[in-house]
């Protein structure tokens, strides 16, 4: 009798354990677009999507990222950084080279390619103890970052002459809290919607000649690790303004180019706040 009881108990136990079957739709609206109900300035989170045109799993990561952008709008500043083996150009379809010296610097420092693509960083801040996140962890990390109060505000304003393809960007940084540390300002040029080839394991055929590459890092205007704008303890509402000149390569579509700027901690590399602005109105 005792044996039968134990058997029955073990059997029953196995059914107690939950098994959550999720029905469509698999996503929920958390629409964070529009500023009306949010305090100004809003939090803007830098999402670096490390990718490569020959990385067949990467388009899935792009899809995930842009489904998040739909939900968060300008709370997210997405930048695709082509690095490592999967970004190397080769003869034929994949002749473009989207790698940049700045991207290579980040790749070497954070060991992105070695960890395997696609990977990403959200504000270069750890999430659940991990810095280099697989795409499935991005949403959680973005949620963590969006909900933190804004301590530094960054505003980008550009002027641009389309004839000479030269421009100037003025970045105003305001410290909203008293902060201690060494602060860097990094300025990038990012080109959106480049039409070029991409490998995708989830389509047939796998080589897509006219893939739309979103927000690709083209160049770092500053040093890849930025310019040190302040060292020490900031005052509340302290303002720092920097102006940089830039020029747009003739092979880039200037109407698709943005200036992305962000303030980060020089030591931990953690990003406080980011902003972006189209170079040409």
């Amino acid at each position: 009798m005792r044996r039968i009881l134990i058997l029955a108990l073990a059997f029953a136990l196995s059914f107690l354990w939950a098994c959550d079957i999720v029905e469509k739709p698999y996503t929920q609206e958390i629409n964070q677009c529009g500023h009306d109900n949010l305090s100004v300035p809003i939090r803007k989170v830098l999402v670096e999507d490390y990718t490569g045109h020959k990385c067949g799993n990467c388009p899935r990561a792009h899809e995930l990222l842009y489904s998040l952008v739909e939900q968060y709008c300008d709370h997210i500043i997405p930048v695709s950084i082509h690095v490592g083996y999967f970004a190397t150009p080769s003869n034929g379809l994949y002749k473009d080279d989207f790698r940049t010296p700045a991207g290579n610097t980040y790749n070497d420092f954070f060991g992105v390619d070695a960890a395997g693509l696609p990977r990403g960083m959200v504000n270069r801040t750890e999430y659940n103890g991990t810095l280099l996140l697989s795409p499935s962890a991005w949403a959680g990390a973005i949620s963590q970052e969006v909900n933190r109060p804004v301590s530094v505000e960054v505003q980008v304003k550009n002027t641009y002459d389309s004839t000479s393809r030269n421009g100037q960007t003025t970045i105003q940084v305001s410290f909203l809290q008293q902060l201690q540390g060494s602060f860097s300002l990094t300025v990038w040029i990012v080109e959106d919607s480049i039409i070029a080839a991409q490998k995708n394991y989830y389509t047939d055929p796998q080589d897509i000649p006219d893939y739309v590459h979103r927000n690709v890092l083209r160049k770092s205007v500053t040093d890849p690790w930025g310019e040190t704008i302040f060292d020490g303890q900031t005052a509340i509402n302290q303002l720092i303004t920097r102006t940089y000149s830039f020029s747009i390569d003739t092979s880039w579509a200037d109407s698709h180019c943005y200036i992305v700027a962000f303030v980060s901690d020089k030591e931990t590399k953690q990003v406080y706040q980011a902003d972006r602005e189209k170079i040409a109105k």
């Binding site: 739709p25 929920q28 659940n128 959680g140």
Partner: peptide, 13 residues
């Protein structure tokens, strides 16, 4: 489920 967008199964069997 720490994902604000996706509804994730917390218990996967």
């Amino acid at each position: 489920d720490d994902n604000p967008v996706y509804i994730l199964p917390q218990n996967v069997a």
